[in-house]
Each structure stands twice: as structure tokens, then as C-alpha cells.
Amino acid sequence: MKLSTLTSAMFGAAFAASAAVADGFPERPINLIAPFNAGGGTDLLLRGLAPHFAEAIGSDVFVSNMAGGSGTVAASALQGQRPDGYQMAYMSVTVSTIQPQIKNVPYGVDSWTPICSVAASPTMLFVTADSPFQSMEDVVSAVKAEPGKYVYGSSGPGAITHLTMVSAFAGLGIIDDMKHLPFQGSGPAIKELTAGNIQFFGDTEILMKRGDFRPLVVFNSERVEGFPDVPTATEVGIAAPLNELYLWGGLFAPAGLEPDVTAKLEAACEGAVASDGFQEFAANSGTVINYRGAEEFDAFFRAQYESNAALIEAAGL
């Protein structure tokens, strides 16, 4: 008798708990995972976002780092977790759309519940300020005149820096006449660009603030505000889908998240991104904010996954 009351009480409690999952969410701290080292660009962006996200959702939020394998280790680990909304990772275009198509990782396009996108910047191809190349036309004629002479760098195979180079040179049909020299990270590659061992490198606009580089082309749908003289990829003759390339990133939870929880997280993300504090942070750090809600981000993510397949093909990855 006593036992049965107890069990029925427990069942009742369990039932009530499952029904109230979304109502009570969040009832414990939320973990935002940076798939790269503490102190890197992604990590700091997330640490800048976390306090505002915490305020918006009304719970503790902490940032943890799970670095390795160009971000695939964190994504692979998250993919196997329970979709309870307490764990999300900030994934970039490469982690979420490129790596799963070139590596045998346990996640793919259907492994996620996209929550929101936070930032997106178009990439640029650039040379040093004292380089003889003033335009992409100069580059094409120089490469055709001396095939095999010119070298482009990247921060590693499959990185956004590599894909920028591939978009440009495959788009112009000269990639087979050039050499690719990958480095470990952007730092050494920029050093070799300054030293002259490589002639071309590509990344987002923020590197232009250094003042010693000259952009030749921007992979955006239109010219960017800061560089009105730099032509878009379409203008220099690069055809779709290689003509646009953005370094974007956003929050992803494992697939199968309850719609109510997704909605709460999405609302918190929107509030956090729009907060004065984060806007100021973004202005200081040169982050280009690009907010998309869950549904819109999902569609964008799937479209990117598709179109980046062409890029991977061109890169020979």
C-alpha cells in the first residue's frame, strides 16, 4: 500500500516533469561550447556574447572550450548529446558545412537544430601593400605568363583562408598554375606573406586594419562600405557559386530539440545580439553582426551546405 502510493507519486512526478520541460527551461546553467582554444577569435566572441545571453534567458551561462581537429571534435561530441537545450556550440561555416563533407565525421547536415546566426563577414583576397599586383587582371596575366611560379597561402587545408584562395583562382581558371602552401594558423602565413614566400592570402576584412595589405577582390554580393574601390568577385569574372564566400557562425544545438526550447533559446539569442553591450563589443572587436532566427538560419545553413560542395570539389579536398 505504502509502496504503491510512493511509486504512483514518483510516476506522477516524472510525468509532470516531462510535460513541464519547456515551461521550466532553463533550470540549470547553459553551456556554450567554443570548438577552438581559449583566447581565440571564436572563443572571445562567445565570451562577449555569454553574459548578454545569460541576462536574456535568465540563467547562468558558461563558455567551455573543446579544441581540436579544426573544430570537428567538439561538433562530433555535441552531436551525440541529448538535445535538452543546455549545450550549444558556436560553429562556423567550415565546422558545420565544409568539414563534414571532407572528413568522415559522425555529423552531417541533419545533425543539428540551428538556433541563430550571430556574425558573418565576406572574405577578401589580398596582397602586400608593396606588391606589383593592382588588380586580379594583373594576377591572371602574371600567372599565365609564368605557370608554377606564384604561391598562395592558407592557415590550413579546408580553412576559410584556403577556400577564399580556391574561390578566386579556381573561379578564374588559374588554380592549376599556382602552388598552395598551407600553414598552421594565420600567424605564420601572414609572416610569410610579409616575407615574400607567398604572394596571396585571404581572410575577412578585419585583417585590413593592419594597414600593410591591399585587397584585390571581395567575395560579397556587392562592394563593401569600407573598401568602395575593391571589386566584387562577380565583377572580376568569377561565376556562381564561387563568387560569394562568407565567414559566418552561429549557435547550434543537437537535432531533435523541442520547439518550445528552441523558441526560448532563439529569443534569448536575439535579445543578446541586440543588446547594447554586445553591439559595443562587436564594434570594438570588428565583428560584423548578422542575426538570423532559427527558421531562417536553418534554411541558410542548408543552402550553404549544398553550395559549398562545389567549393570543396574545386579545392580538391
Binding site: 581565440g40 600567424g187 586594419k209 593592419r210 600593410d212 564594434a283 570594438n284
Partner: peptide
């Protein structure tokens, strides 16, 4: 690795590391 963290911290404070 540690100077990379320092440069990233500078960037947050609106200073872009570079030759200048």
C-alpha cells in the same frame, strides 16, 4: 600560443595588431 591570446585580447579592445 600565449601571444596569440594577447593579440586577440587587444583586438577586443579595438586595437588591430599590425606593423603600426
Amino acid at each position: 600560443a600565449i601571444t596569440a591570446v594577447m593579440l586577440a585580447t587587444l583586438t577586443l579592445h579595438g586595437i588591430t595588431p599590425g606593423p603600426k
